[in-house]
Design a protein around this nucleic acid. Sequence first.
DNA 1: CGCTATAAATGGAACGTTCCAATAAATCAA
DNA 2: TTGATTTATTGGAACGTTCCATTTATAGCG
Lengths: 347, 347
Amino acid sequence: MASRAKATILDIAREAGVSKSTVSLVLQGSGLIRPETAVKVRKAIEDVGYVYNRGAANLRKAHSNVIGMVINDLTNPFFAELAVGMERVFQAAGVVPFIANTAENPVRQEEVLKSLMEQGVAGLIVSPARGTTPGAFRRIETAGVPIVFAMRRLPDSRIPVITPDNHRGAVLATEHLIRKGHRRLAFFGGSSDLVVYHERLGGFLEACETLGIPSADRLIVEGETSRKGGMACLETALAAAESPTAALCFNDAVAFGVMLALRRRNLEAGADFAVVGFDDVTEAEHYSPALTSVAVDTAGLGERAAHVMLKMIQSRTTRAEDHIGAVSLVIRESSGPDRNKQVGDAA
Amino acid sequence: MASRAKATILDIAREAGVSKSTVSLVLQGSGLIRPETAVKVRKAIEDVGYVYNRGAANLRKAHSNVIGMVINDLTNPFFAELAVGMERVFQAAGVVPFIANTAENPVRQEEVLKSLMEQGVAGLIVSPARGTTPGAFRRIETAGVPIVFAMRRLPDSRIPVITPDNHRGAVLATEHLIRKGHRRLAFFGGSSDLVVYHERLGGFLEACETLGIPSADRLIVEGETSRKGGMACLETALAAAESPTAALCFNDAVAFGVMLALRRRNLEAGADFAVVGFDDVTEAEHYSPALTSVAVDTAGLGERAAHVMLKMIQSRTTRAEDHIGAVSLVIRESSGPDRNKQVGDAA
DNA sequence: CGCTATAAATGGAACGTTCCAATAAATCAA
DNA sequence: TTGATTTATTGGAACGTTCCATTTATAGCG
């Protein structure tokens, strides 16, 4: 079976009785070759079991057709949804995205980026790992390879970013809680080495300010952005002197953790303690009680990021505008008794 | 900034005052070069901002260092965990895995495989999409590129498979339910175009047989392998004349769906209807009630698959033994009142 | 000192493609 | 008929690496 030395363009040229140039033209779908010749060549390709060597091709061609998607945590369904959104667009454009996971580890990220670059990617969409150093992408920038950041930004970088309107989302959610009558509020989860954290926390604080919640009645508990982190946050909060009655969580994972911790204490999310999440992952709707959350249109942002990348590649530029995606509050049961059923308006 | 024509090995040779061959040797970490020379060269590499062109290298080298992981559904945390397990091993081996998602679509899978092959991957780990045609991998086999199937197998293929012991897992789970006193049992979710389905259902039926549950008291409901599918299954089952009191679900997603549907009917999983899942995803433990499930050591299977792949590449063979992973039943609340807290023994 | 053995560095050919300039064949104008 | 134009096809020179066979420098030994 396994025909030894793998077939090259010359083998199929010989097989079809044409020159290698002709085969190359056929491969690229050039309109210059006579249809009958093309058919003959394609048959030879099939017969020989030829596989195209893109590495060799890229040696001469300017651009490759592969795009790298670097994701900081694939096990988080949120980022998986993001990846899927991007994929849809790339597929339609005939581009194959390769996904690489950094597991929130900057060192791993470095390796992954290096490898992708060596592979000759046409562009990179990155959701940077926590703790990424500012210079981590300089190498790539000077190489002239377009990059787009998705969901997360770096403190002082000029790389275009596609992100939801975190500030506005946090404002919407916080206002919602205050309007429900809560006067002592908490912000749960996340840590200050993430720019997103500041954006979301900022929105929370602004809404508190505007609606007259004194800073003494705001509790901020940093923590892991996971279920476990959320559970810890709730424990901390309930141990406080004047404990809060409602919390905006950094993301849905934290919110799920909070709800679990509540249940363990025989408290009910919604009735005894209001919980609002962020990101509105698909699970949120199915939880019990269903989680009120800020919907960010994850897949839509993924699509947008992919489009921006394609545009950048096409116009061979390394610059693009940021995109701040609209958000909306999806009100479900976890934020309190089900009195008003309307959905928050989009930003 | 972006130094135009990107630097090659010759540029850095000139910069360092050595020959291109020397640079190549340094790049490969050959012990032949004098340490001081290596240092000089590495400095030049840094100064010039050189990026290695793996495509060019692969033109001469036998093997590339990239391995493709083709996953049928990245949004399913189960497969994401699998991917993460593989990654761990590959990272340690200095190999970079590229992940591609097929979204359970055979056509997409075809594209993805083609692209990966063109990229010159050293090997492929594949969780085949549902409905994959038997011949889909012939191309790759004849090209002599090693493949391993993970979690799923194809009906009549000689490609090595890494999979959990589905049959045994189903037997364990079913026995557990029967020992709890249930006499009318259901098997929920999945469909017969999946080999796994037959394995799991087979275990269920065998256990029923052995422990004397007549076939009239076994209900089999096919359905989507998702929450939604699970909800539908339960409705169907409760509508039956003599409805079952317990169900083994095809996977955890189905089980979650069943529990949601129970809650909507104001029934409690465990007390009113026993539910057992399959795969034991991390969520299972955190659900309420916590889900009894067959643990398959997902990440471990991923690691195993990666190891097998590395071994195949190293020994340049395209054959390897199948690996059937041990499973264990993790008993939690969803399968009935919390009387016995022990964990099922491994297969 | 000359000779061999070892260590370090090197030039050139090859890998599989693309692309340009050139050719060959067919068509048209005059 | 000849030349110009169009249509298909083709050889050869890149592209950036690796690897083999050499060359050059260094050391060892009698």
